[in-house]
């Protein structure tokens, strides 16, 4: 599904990613771990197509399409979703309207008619229940005045509504208490299917007790320095990132 080949990327001329290789297949969950400032969020932004993140080498293929040719919104319409580490507040726009707009633009891209109101409402109800969201949340403005936990739940709620092929969750666990973490993880697990994939970016092993990854990667100084099974996360937790440095 996702194939990253020797990807280098820079912000304001400063190189952050220095030759990343990553293969993600449909049905898989990958975890990317690593200390602060090693390029984890940069990788997420480059895949999503954020302006100011310049690809200086290599390529990203998504279901065979070169992402360099696509704008941020086209990537989303192709099925890439980014769960933000710091979701943005949009006062004055309700979650309901925001999501309906996004769904309809994505449907238009795929040559489909707008979603019928009934179908949309039904989907909202189901997903709200799944994520144990309060009823009134959907009528509130996007992320406005939300607690940290509510913002992250709202990211997963949007992911559930948009049904992407590839979800990249950037530090979704940061700032969550254990209950919120459990709800977020349950949501991600329930949305897992044979035809979609998830990349979980995280600092700590904690989240991976709930979302069990197929592959764990360690990103360090702009490179993926180690990949392995879920046991790699445990080992990292036990030995710390210093251990990785020693391995290099």
């Amino acid at each position: 599904m996702l194939s990253i080949k020797n990807l280098s990327a820079a912000i304001n001329g400063k190189e952050i990613l220095k030759g990343v290789n990553l293969e993600v297949k449909a049905g898989e969950v990958h975890a990317i771990m690593g200390p602060n400032g090693t390029g984890k969020s940069t990788l997420a932004y480059v895949i999503a197509g954020r302006q100011g993140y310049e690809v200086t080498g290599g390529e990203i293929l998504f279901n065979g399409r070169n992402l360099a040719e696509l704008s941020t919104e086209e990537r989303a319409c192709e099925g890439i979703f980014l769960g933000f580490q710091y979701p943005v507040e949009i006062p004055g726009v309700s979650i309901t309207n925001f999501l309906r707009t996004a769904i309809n633009e994505q449907r238009k891209y795929r040559g489909l008619d707008p979603i019928p109101a009934k179908e949309f409402l039904k989907s909202m109800e189901e997903k709200k229940k799944m994520l144990e969201l309060q009823d009134k949340l959907a009528n509130r403005s996007v992320n406005e005045g939300f607690s940290g936990g509510e913002k992250k739940k709202n990211e997963i709620f949007q992911m559930a509504m948009l049904e992407p092929k590839l979800s990249i969750l950037d530090e979704t666990d940061s700032g969550l208490d254990i209950d919120a973490l459990r709800i977020v993880a349950t949501g991600v697990n329930k949305l897992r299917r044979q035809d979609n994939a998830t990349i979980v970016i995280t600092h700590y092993q904690r989240l991976l007790e709930y979302i069990v990854p197929d592959v764990v990667h360690v990103l360090f100084d702009g490179h993926i320095v180690k990949s392995g099974g879920k046991e790699l996360a445990l080992k990292l937790e036990e030995k710390g990132y210093e251990w990785i440095k020693g391995q290099m």
């Binding site: 704008s71 933000f84 006062p91 707009t101 994505q106 891209y109 403005s141 948009l162």
Partner: peptide
């Protein structure tokens, strides 16, 4: 970026933000 990353076009994202500002 947040709005566009959900699939909403740049021009509509601008309108959405301006609308939100005035709202």
């Amino acid at each position: 970026f947040y709005i566009r990353s959900r699939g909403i076009s740049e021009s509509n994202a601008r309108i959405l933000l301006m609308y939100a500002f005035a709202a």
